[in-house]
């Protein structure tokens, strides 16, 4: 498979009056052409900051990319000028945000917002761009597209706005689409529509998608590969089935167990992860999850674990994987005991 994006050892910080927040602390991953990768984790784990760094949407200052490179189709985008970046953003890669209410321009017709990027990036004439805009609206399943293109965002419902956002993002046929919690603000029946739409479009246009979410159901529905983030680091990565059926990191176990499955008995307690994530002003030296981890050993507090390979494409940053560590049976998944 061909690599589209390569993030290497990325570190992003924010300078605030209270000190420096280390939001992303050394993250590396690849995205291949046309694949769907999910980044999961809780709020504040750095998943959105990672995505925004790829789009170069981090406000600087206060944000700074301290280290690392983001290579998109052979070019390191951390080194591009803002003007060069403008050519890539919206045409080669684009983003769909969580809140469709605030991310559309309320003073512009929806059709014009789609046509805008076509005129800018593909140098289309306005008439041609308008036609394409209507086509895009049809593609994302908006009925009466001709009429709808002439309306303003406030005349659209939440689900329709998110469809319009996707239409804008896909208008120039980008190679990479980043969807940051695209369905969190939507109702379940509308969420199902949007997820279906994204999958269809990915098949049709062969766009690679990075989907950022904390909803494991959405991940299971859409993703092919999963990156699990915690406190600014990727703590486990693997194919969808690796993560759900053979998870190896205690945090992943906790995440998987804290969502009730439909057949969960009421008499059983939900497994919760006690405590809260660490303060990223002063991230711990060792594993950031150690204080909440019931399997924590002495070394976990002292040294950040290296990434251990479980199988091809599946790796985990946890000391339990060390050959000398005690054997622990994962409480979830169909997995075997750790070897």
């Amino acid at each position: 498979m061909e690599k589209l994006l390569e993030v290497k050892d990325l570190e992003v910080s924010f300078k605030t009056y209270a000190g420096e927040i280390k939001a992303v602390r050394g993250v590396s991953f690849d995205i291949n052409k046309g694949e769907i990768v999910a980044i999961v984790g809780e709020s504040g784990c750095g998943k959105s900051v990672t995505a925004q760094s790829i789009m170069r949407l981090i406000p600087m200052p206060p944000g700074i990319i301290k280290k690392g490179s983001i290579i998109f189709e052979g070019r390191d985008i951390t080194k591009l000028s803002e003007r060069e970046m403008e050519h890539i953003r919206g045409s080669e890669m684009s983003m769909v945000f969580q809140d469709p209410m605030t991310s559309l321009n309320p003073t512009m017709k929806v059709g014009a917002q789609i046509a805008e990027s076509l005129i800018k990036h593909q140098k289309m004439h306005s008439k041609e761009a308008w036609k394409k805009a209507i086509e895009m609206l049809k593609m994302v399943g908006i009925p009466n597209a001709e009429k709808r293109a002439n309306q303003y965002p406030h005349e659209f419902s939440g689900g329709m706005r998110q469809r319009a956002m996707i239409a804008i993002a896909l208008a120039c046929n980008p190679k990479l689409l980043i969807a940051d919690e695209p369905t969190t603000a939507l109702d379940v029946t509308i969420q199902a529509q949007i997820l279906d739409l994204m999958r269809d479009l990915q098949k049709k246009l062969n766009t690679a998608i990075i989907i950022i979410t904390h909803n494991l159901g959405v991940v299971a529905n859409l993703a092919e590969r999963v990156l699990v983030m915690y406190a600014g680091k990727i703590i486990e990565r693997g194919n969808l089935d690796d993560i759900f059926y053979n998870p190896r990191h205690p945090y992943t176990w906790g995440l998987l167990m804290s969502v009730p499955t439909p057949d969960l008995d009421k008499s059983k307690k939900l497994a919760s992860i006690e405590g809260t994530p660490p303060d990223l002003f002063a991230p711990p030296v060792g594993c950031p999850f150690a204080p909440r981890c019931e399997y924590a050993m002495k070394i976990c507090y002292e040294k950040y674990p290296e990434e251990f390979t479980v199988s091809d494409g599946h790796s985990v940053a946890c000391w339990l994987m060390h050959p000398l560590a005690p054997k622990v049976k994962p409480p979830v998944g169909k997995g075997v005991t750790l070897s």
Partner: peptide, 27 residues
């Protein structure tokens, strides 16, 4: 029925097998 089928279940196999009842349009 539609509401129940729309909830994504955190289990990849169930998700692959599931037949979703898609509701057209909005409320």
């Amino acid at each position: 029925q539609a509401l129940l089928s729309a909830i994504p279940i955190p289990d990849p196999e169930t998700e692959r097998k599931k037949k979703r009842i898609l509701l057209e349009g909005d409320v």
